[in-house]
């Protein structure tokens, strides 16, 4: 199944998370929007690292994949929240 959640954050940044899952784990995920991430490749890294991750493991996987990334306009906690909402 596929679901997306879009949210507008403080500072006006808009973020959309799209998740394709099989009910047990994430098959594909895409994070889009007008936020900033440094280095930019960090977002693609997160998207790769979350593939095939079990739903209960999302927080741990995202926290470990996002270690060296500076996000502006959205936080890791926001992303976890949105991914979990997509998986509800």
């Amino acid at each position: 199944m596929e679901r997306s959640v879009a949210r507008k954050f403080r500072d006006g940044k808009m973020v959309k998370v799209w998740v394709k899952s099989d009910g047990g784990s994430i098959k594909e995920i895409r994070i889009t929007g007008d936020f900033f991430a440094h280095p930019e490749e960090g977002i693609e890294l997160i998207e790769r690292e979350l593939r095939d991750v079990k739903i209960v493991e999302v927080r741990r996987a995202l926290e470990s994949a996002s270690g060296g990334i500076t996000l502006i306009g959205v936080s890791i906690e926001d992303l976890i929240d949105m991914i979990e909402e997509c998986l509800e």
Partner: peptide, 9 residues
């Protein structure tokens, strides 16, 4: 468009 934006949106 920004690097992370979905263009058609």
């Amino acid at each position: 468009v920004g690097y992370f934006q979905e263009l058609k949106e």
